[in-house]
Design a binder for these strands. Sequence first.
RNA 1: GGCGGCGUGGUGAAAUGGCAGACACAGCGGACUUAAAAUCCGCUGGGCUUAACCGCCCGUGCGGGUUCGAGUCCCGCCGCCGCUACCA
Length: 903
Amino acid sequence: MSTARRKPYPFDIFEPKWQQHWDRQQTFHAPNPGELGFDSAKSKYYVLDMFPYPSGAGLHVGHPEGYTATDILGRYKRMRGCNVLHPMGWDAFGLPAEQYAIKTGQHPAVTTAQNVAHFKGQLQRLGFGYDWQREVNTTDPGYFRWTQWIFLQLYNSYYDPELKKAQPIALLEDALSLDPQRKAEWSENVYLLGTHSAYAGMDEEHRASLRENLLQYARLAYVSEAPVNWCSELGTVLANEEVIDGKSEVGGHPVERRPMRQWMLRITSYAQRLIDELDGLDWPEGIKLLQKNWIGRSEGAEVEFKTAEGSERIIVFTTRPDTLYGATYMVLAPEHALVEKIVTEEQWPAVREYRDKTARKSDLDRTDLAKDKTGVWTGAFAVNPVNGERIPIWIADYVLTGYGTGAIMAVPAHDERDWEFAKKFALPIREVVSSSPRLSVGLAGGGGSGVCNSEPLECFVGEGFAVNSGPLDGFSSEDAKAEITRLLTEQRLGFQTVNYKLRDWLFSRQRYWGEPFPIVWENGQHRALDASELPLRPPELADFKPTGTGEPPLAKATDWLRYSDKATRETNTMPQWAGSCWYYLRYCDAQNAARFVGTDAERYWMGGGQPGGVDLYVGGTEHAVLHLLYARFWHKVLFDLGHVSTPEPFQRLVNQGLILGEDGQKMSKSRGNVVNPDDVIVEYGADALRGYLMFMGPLEATKPWSMSGVEGIARFLARVWRLVMAEQQDGSWALGAVSAEAEPDKAQLRVIHASIKKVTADIEALSFNTALSQLMIFTNAFVNTTPRPLSAVRTLLTLLNPFAPHLTEELWQNLAARFGDAGELADAVWPAWDERLLIDDEIEIALQVNGKVRDKIVVLKDATREAVEAQARSSAKIAEWTAGKEIKKVIVVPGKLVNIVVA
RNA sequence: GGCGGCGUGGUGAAAUGGCAGACACAGCGGACUUAAAAUCCGCUGGGCUUAACCGCCCGUGCGGGUUCGAGUCCCGCCGCCGCUACCA
């Protein structure tokens, strides 16, 4: 009685054997153009995984799900004769590593190295065909040197709104110094840089400083004093995307808004291109939509109001300029710069109290109280530019600083939020849009518009026809928008514009474990390091904890900090997303010491095919608006500057679905339903794990784990094993009854060719579960055949190889030892099918009467329509069902069915 | 509230508008075995009918529609999951 469970086949012996073999032989190394062994006659296939963050917890089963899918594609494309680039690396900078290091008192470099080694070991035990010579690690100076270099590209560029692309900042510098006229134009229109709305909301002092520092401000990487998401618990600021429900995505700590000097990347300049250029991509529609919504384009107008005293301008953004006549009050965000200038003495105490209260509230609280509107009157009035009406100016937290201009005109009759607010504070409500065309019912006096003073009974947010709107009356909402915009433009009171929800990317973090900025400060001005000074390594710091004050930990490194007698280094570091923005480019030429990626290598792996880019990118949906948007942005900048050859990085994107625990719940430590891939490999082997992950359902579906499902796949693989191997008396395995002379019978031949066809199509379509079920059918068709035809067995092993590479390679080798054969299965050629063998001479088809199956008959494969119909009519059952009825129509679907329609 | 995805046996799931449930899991029965495991074979959506075969009816969340024919397409609901949230 042995305590160890007997293995159905000796995977524990041959799996490590083949893993070592592939590693020693560098089987999956993909030579670059110009490298020995490179074959330019082959076409390229670049298949990419989202590289993991090597956390202390190790791999979970979600990782190998996507990785197995790409591995299957890579191995398959290799057998189809492609040069396959299938790399792996580590996204190793970032908060968790640093927090873990603080907790354990070890340097993050040490813990990161340990975690990487652990992850790599786990991945290697799964038998993935990676080209490890291209391994990248974002924390490696040889890597982040180029992350810093790309930052300098951004820093030294601006976005030209006319060319709609990034240009070297030197061009702007020259243009502006040569052409004072143009400089004046640009200074007056800083919004050309793509920050129109932000500029409109600024106070004059801020604007003046902007104009003065136009060149600095125009850069794609610039410094801003804007309010940011500050998390005191983490001791850093966070990007909008990293804040969820007013809490940090990492750790769930409270986040407050605080003005700080930060580095920003001007992603908003690319908003339109980031939307438009999604069109040509083979991505899930849902992800495209998610990105579009995140960028949040909306068309409308900016309209200038003046305070009643006429001293201040208040600019608002609205998507409904047609409702301008219905604006009965205005609202500024509590933080709006203008509030201090317009608030009256009597209202100051109330305003100050309200502002303090909002500042203390997290975004979460603000959302929670969404139902109950709050606000305070400033005591000031504005003038509605179209009708000269005095309307009160309020502050309220339902108006956000971060969107539009931070100020709105409130049209309570046609906006739900304004409606609620007006109801609560008894502000006037005037209907200016009617759902049906009708005449104004107001008085027609003094050339002014007719105004109906009775308040509408409910809020109407739809489009319709303008009423109570002076010259707009009777216009459809669409026409009214165009007309009012025209009028406003004429009077220089407004203009048509496009607003985006997307904010510029807050790019600095007050952390130790990230890329230092290649920037020094002198006399309050920043300037770039020279590329030759890269990489800029972080200082060796014994104490790298956050200071808690917002001062970055790098400031503690006094020697490092000093760049020269006059200049000091920037102490912020880059966010974790930086390294992952371009890693797919580094893979193309990972060892290049002279460039971030060699030109030839980039052209070959990223260019190549028609649309270009990575041919297949597989990863989780959680990166839909973070990594995938940032990477596209960086790529476009590099493209504009001529450093890469395609405008988009990832041509085809597929999201693998979430794997739930056996209880149908999300896997989590607290639920105790987490599956560790290592345990599964020990028990069932890597091939069984890979096979199960692919068999459990469609790649993109969310699906629960099942241990007995793994056993099912293990049983199938064991059946394949025994198809080739026979167990000996002593328990060892030897080649079984396989014969080179044996031929598959007709039915088997059909199964073989149907399998080649289906498995090929299914792999291309990433439908791995159905490919495997076909391979089971293939296998089952031969289990009772002895001896097994060698050709059939070899075809089966070839088709199964991408899924179960160890098992099939081992069996292939055993067959070769007896029958002789050149080479390894990994290098074999993918089989082709013969369409003629797929169809039997006779086919069974269904006979229907009024769509219901009543009989089945066997017809010759090339029987004519008429012959099939005649045969159908001669069926006794059909005669029975159609007896005494008029046959109105007979539909013959060749090879499928005959449907007889009776009255 | 908005956007997106999904509803098919006991379970995971198949199905270019053409015979619903392939392939597995679990279950039941059998063979082999002293016995068990492993393996192999058979059955396995629900109901009615029959001694049995046969045969018939119902069935893809619900209600309509298009079609010779709908799990699949269209319209309207219900339920679950994910993302997002005062975006002017």
